[in-house]
């Protein structure tokens, strides 16, 4: 990278999904259809020509209506999805907070899950032992660490998930709608933690439907609409324009993205 302060660089990224017009689940059908050349797909471009850079230490909010492609972008940055066209550069460790507790095995106890989840994020067992008390402390689950996670409430799962994902010093923290769970007190605690990480230099990618939250947490914002990058800039400016646009389009057309695509 020519600019070493750029931690994420997305260049002309396209993502195509094949929406099978009829689901082919078995081998026989697949074979017959392939021979007859009948395997047909509806192409759907979830992202079209998206380019933007994120500087180290920035906190970027992704905004847009449902189905606009925000989570798809996060998945590309997390390395889960590969773009159909274009290139992605990520210059650091990524801690995904996409859906808290995704990595939990519900049959294991909270304690065992701490180590499993830590390993998923690339931490060794000795490292996790060092973090363990901090995790218990932050999640406030002292009395429940030996209880299987299947007996946890969703709020408890979220608390544990958040506590694990934010330990260490991830270079990039991805937060997808994470603060929708948990009580107000814990949400506040999470915000404090996120601000603290930001001060320590962690880059934050933040998806929320609360535009206030985006304006509060982020200094930059990227507005995605129907897979296109509509606007990028200061979070307050972009947020204001986005909010106005939502008001003027009260009858929102967000759910017809799939049908009216080329």
């Amino acid at each position: 990278m020519d600019n070493k302060d750029t931690i994420i660089s997305i260049k002309n990224v396209y993502i195509k999904f094949n929406l099978a017009s009829e689901r082919i689940d078995n081998f026989k059908e697949y074979l017959i259809k392939t021979i007859k050349r009948q395997v047909s797909y509806d192409e759907f471009w979830a992202l079209k020509d998206i380019s933007f850079d994120v500087k180290r230490g920035d906190s970027v909010g992704l905004i847009g209506v449902n189905g606009s492609g925000k989570s798809t972008i996060l998945k590309i940055i997390a390395g889960v999805l590969k773009p159909t066209k274009g290139s992605v550069y990520v210059g650091g460790s990524v801690a995904p907070l996409i859906e808290l507790g995704a990595g939990f095995d519900i049959d294991l106890t909270a304690r065992e899950n701490v180590f499993l989840n830590g390993a998923l994020l690339g931490h060794t067992r000795p490292e996790m032992e060092g973090f363990y008390d901090e995790i218990v402390e932050f999640s406030e689950l002292h009395d429940f660490m030996d209880v299987p996670v299947k007996n946890f409430s969703s709020g408890m799962v979220a608390r544990l998930g958040f506590s694990i994902a934010t330990i260490g010093h991830p270079d990039i923290l991805i937060c997808d709608e994470i603060l929708a769970v948990g009580d107000a007190k814990f949400q506040e605690k999470c915000m404090v933690r996120i601000h603290q990480l930001m001060n320590e230099g962690t880059t934050i990618l933040f998806v929320s439907h609360s535009i206030e939250q985006v304006m509060d947490v982020c200094n930059k914002a990227v507005w995605i609409n129907k897979g296109h990058l509509k606007m990028m800039g200061d979070s307050k400016e972009v947020g204001e324009i986005y909010r106005d646009s939502l008001k003027s389009h009260e009858t929102d057309d967000s759910f017809d993205v799939i049908e009216n695509d080329e």
Binding site: L108, A119, T124
Partner: peptide, 17 residues
């Protein structure tokens, strides 16, 4: 090598469960 710890944890989980 980066993920070998995960491998250990996953094997341990399988057996524990």
């Amino acid at each position: 090598l980066r993920y070998r710890h995960l491998l250990v944890e996953l094997v341990g989980r399988d057996i524990k469960i």
